[in-house]
Amino acid sequence: MKYRKVLQNLFLIRKTEELISKEYHKNIFRCPVHLSIGQEAISAAINFVFNSKDLAVSSHRAHAHYIGKGGNIKNMFAEILGLKGCSGGIGGSMHLTDKSVGFISSSAIVGNSIPVGVGLSLSQKMENKKNLTLIFFGDGATEQGVFFESVNFSALKNLPTLFICEDNKYSVYSSLSVRQPENRDILKVVKKMGIEAIEADGNNIFQVIKTYQKAKKYIFSKKKPFFIKFNTYRYVEHCGPYDDDNLNYRPKKEIKRWKRKCPISFFSNYLVKKNIMKNKQIVALEKEIENYIHNLYKNSKNYPRPNFSTTKKLIYNEKSR
């Protein structure tokens, strides 16, 4: 395993999100942001199992998936700054794209991108190549009808779809208890619909990688879709850069327990304990990535502002075929 590379990926996401969080009060990121601090491992593992021909779609909380898939971070910063970034400044934080690495799209409407991902995997099946589509969504999205309709279709047509639910237990401020019956087990539900499903610790990157490998093998050997539920937790507010634990919608004990399970400290501790890296080296790498991200951010500020009349020309695709 490329330990240093794994740690690097984790830091890339954490440092990007922290930078947005730290800079947000300056009111230069003038759009809603949904940060993935605490949920990084699920995205940091992507590129150790999947390649750029494998496609991905995501939800409103998409920064981590975009970066994990190898998306251009400068273009993303520019997009959130309202400059001519990855979506021309039109989409903002919730509508990211980087086709060059297979990160197709993310959507601000809960559940909206799930069938789109299934459609992408349908196209992959038609091409008969060994590629699949990763669909990232939250626990809340599994309450939408379109989720079940998409699972049903993917199972019916035996598509190379990998459904990835990041179960962070909350939809905005709403806990699972007000949204789902107590013993609803999404794994059992999708299994009964004909899709193999497993659950894993989303804060343990070893487990994440192993689960992805298992899923990939299954999808290509059995020619069927696969469903993963990663248990994880978000560390800052649902939308925005700050901690909102003062609102008391999440039990203090629960927050504490999950903060002890930080995916980055978990992995760093492992590296130190196993003598793979020294603490000093880890701190140095963290600093190095932090500087790297800071530079990308600085450069992204030089992107041009989007031009209104060229933006307006994008409403229809006027290119002749």
């Binding site: 003038r30 759009c31 309202g82 400059l83 021309g88 400044g89 039109i90 989409g91 903002g92 934080s93 919730m94 509508h95 502002r305 989007p306 209104f308 933006t311 307006k312 409403i315």
Partner: peptide, 15 residues
């Protein structure tokens, strides 16, 4: 409004 969806960017939405 202009005949379009509202873009996210601060530099576009004013128009």
């Amino acid at each position: 409004n202009e005949e379009m969806s509202v873009p996210t960017s601060f530099y576009l939405s004013d128009k």
